[in-house]
Design a protein around this nucleic acid. Structure first.
Length: 565
RNA sequence: GGGCCUGUAGCUCAGUUGGUUAGAGCAGAGCGCUCAUAACGCUUUGGUCGCAGGUUCGAGUCCUGCCGGGCCUACCA
């Protein structure tokens, strides 16, 4: 039994995430976790809210709440939505947890011991009226290059020129609009990543099986200009993991966030009344994590931190922490010709999605269209067509036609009689081949390919049923029809098991209708199709997937075009 | 500006180390079935593989240039 550690990129705390965020990390991670559990592997699936940083402080201020309270509240909101989306985290932690505080400070101390931390004095813009230092992009003004008035302190969007806040004409704080700014000297800790460049380069180069998206971004950072640069890992903020010995400073959110993968596993142990050994066997190669395979899921914007910064932290600590084995990264999902936009309220957010349709509809569409090779696009037409065809017609209707036919001819019980012949054997051979392909795609995290293979497995059932035509056989040979239906009812159970990673709720409903809790993964198809014996009772399931009507589609199209309160 | 990714049937996408008539699903057309959520099955119409050159016996697949789309470029996270 393999042991698989899975982490999904941490969703940032400042609000409900949209479908693009979901398909970029949490959902494919959940697919992989559910599949591996289904196959009997030992899985630890970890996620958490990323709670530190300037945006969290500002969002809290805007909401008129203390930041700790704000984060606690938003964490619960996100946790609830994640649960309703069927995201099966073993633990959904918080980067503000005491565990993460301890680990972050511990690792920083180790890095310092190893000469990988450097104190640097730099000048930054301080907003007197806001009472805080401002990151470059929270300062705006007129671009000295093109005269654009909304240029940010890091770059002008109009002419794309790289800027520094002091270049701006008439700069002001985007937090308050105040122009009462001054440049102050402040000390910060830098992680000397440059010293680890060769080690990281060699490590990345050895990962020939990683997605190109992952390795190309990492190599760009390693080789661009003077190569991997040192990175500031502290900020002048109140909310965060305090830097020991540096009053008023906390670690940079991108330093502590990945450490929370470990922290959240420690939170899991505590929440379950377990000792440190319970989580260390996932994370310390000297304490049992030797045989763990660690897989990370994330959107492409997160790749540099996971391929370079976090590994630098791990390697630089000199301690035997578990390094990632595989990084699965995703492109972006766009919304109907443009980007999802939190600020403009464009697109569908997780809570809204659940308010109009069950999670399985979203899970199926998103996963079967996962942006693996390039950016993908959500359109309502495509969503409606895919979901209606795949889920309602191909899968849902299969369960419906089989169970209803059985009920009317034999009652709600698996019928006895008849024998299997060449048609059944041909179906079994097809399924055997396709399930093997499905397993392989799932093992490889080829999400779209796995989805299309699963769909082909559903189609095989309809093909068989059409050819076997039990409604015709029943007229002069009821036993022959019984054999077909017995097999088909078992097929429903098999489909529920195989489909569970994609559509867990529907799968559970089908298993319940089939009156079984045997959800063992089919290693032997013939055997799997004998699970429900003659005489086993079942019930006809409710409509598994209702179709999306044209009226609904048009209504939603209108509703989500823009402006979310 | 630099780097990377991408452009294949109306739509969404597969196309392995270059090898015979370029594939799938959806949509369209025809036929069949009537158990079923007007569902299912079978057959079938669609492509000078962004454009132009080049390498090769042979290129969707390799090289060069151009055009279009996207992402990243280190203080948002």
């Amino acid at each position: 039994m393999a042991r698989i550690l899975i982490t999904s990129a941490l969703p940032y705390i400042n609000g409900v995430k949209h479908l693009g965020n979901l398909i970029g990390s949490q959902l494919p991670a959940d697919l992989f976790a559910r599949y591996n559990r289904g196959r009997g592997n030992e899985v630890m699936f970890i996620c958490a809210t990323d709670e530190h940083g300037t945006p969290a402080e500002l969002a809290a201020a805007k909401a008129g709440q203390p930041v700790a309270e704000y984060c606690a509240e938003l964490h619960d909101v996100q946790a609830d939505i994640a649960k309703r989306f069927g995201l099966s985290f073993d633990y959904f932690g918080r980067s503000s947890s005491p565990q993460n505080h301890r680990l972050t400070q511990h690792l920083a101390a180790k890095l310092a011991e190893n000469g990988l931390i450097e104190e640097v004095s730099e000048k930054q813009v301080y907003s007197i009226d806001d009472g805080r230092f401002l990151p470059d992009r929270y300062i705006e003004g007129t671009c000295p290059n093109c005269g654009h008035e909304g240029a940010r302190g890091d770059q002008c969007d109009e002419c794309t020129k790289q800027l520094s806040p002091t270049d701006l004409i008439d700069p002001y704080s985007t937090v308050s609009g105040s122009k009462n700014l001054e440049v102050r000297e402040t000390k910060h800790l830098f992680l000397r990543q440059s010293k680890l460049r060769d080690v990281l380069d060699e490590w990345i180069s050895s990962k020939t099986d990683w997605p190109i998206l992952t390795t190309s971004i990492a190599k760009k950072w390693l080789h661009d200009g003077d190569g991997l640069r040192d990175r500031g890992i502290t900020r002048d903020l109140d909310w965060g993991v305090p830097v020991p010995g540096m009053e008023g400073k906390v670690f940079y959110v991108w330093f502590d966030a990945p450490i929370e993968y470990i922290g959240a596993t420690a939170e899991w142990a505590e929440a379950n009344g377990l000792d440190d050994a319970a989580w260390e066997r996932w994370w310390r190669t000297d304490k049992g994590a030797d045989d763990v395979r660690y897989v990370q899921f994330m959107g492409k914007d997160n790749v540099p931190f996971h391929t370079l910064s976090f590994p630098a932290t791990i390697m630089g600590s000199g301690e035997p922490w578990k390094l990632v084995d595989y990084i699965k990264s995703f492109n972006y999902l766009n919304y109907d010709g443009g980007q999802f936009s939190t600020s403009k309220g464009r697109g569908v957010f997780m809570d809204q999605a659940l308010s109009i349709l069950p999670s399985d509809y979203w899970r199926w569409w998103l996963l079967s269209h996962a942006p693996e090779n390039s950016d993908a696009e959500f359109t309502w037409e495509n969503f409606q067509a895919s979901v209606n065809k795949d889920l309602a017609d191909v899968l849902g209707n299969f369960a419906s036609r089989v169970t209803k036919f059985c009920r009317s001819k034999f009652g709600e019980v698996v019928p006895d009689g008849g024998t299997y012949g060449p048609e059944e054997q041909a179906l079994i051979d097809t399924l055997d081949k396709r399930i093997k392909a499905y397993n392989t795609h799932m093992d490889d995290m080829e999400v779209r390919k796995a989805a299309s293979e699963l769909r082909a497995i559903w189609v095989a059932g309809n093909e068989y049923l059409q050819a076997a035509a039990p409604w015709a056989k029943f007229k002069d040979d009821p036993d022959a029809a019984a054999a077909v239906i017995r097999l088909s009812l078992n097929l429903i159970r098999l489909y529920a098991v195989l489909s569970a990673p994609f559509i867990p709720d529907a799968s559970a409903a089908l298993l319940k209708a089939m009156n079984t809790d045997d959800d063992s993964w089919p290693d032997d198809v013939t055997q799997a199709l004998e699970t429900l014996p003659a005489g086993h009772t079942f019930t006809v399931p409710e409509v598994t997937f209702a179709k999306i009507t044209d009226d609904q589609r048009e209504e939603w199209q209108e509703k989500f075009a823009g402006k979310r309160e």
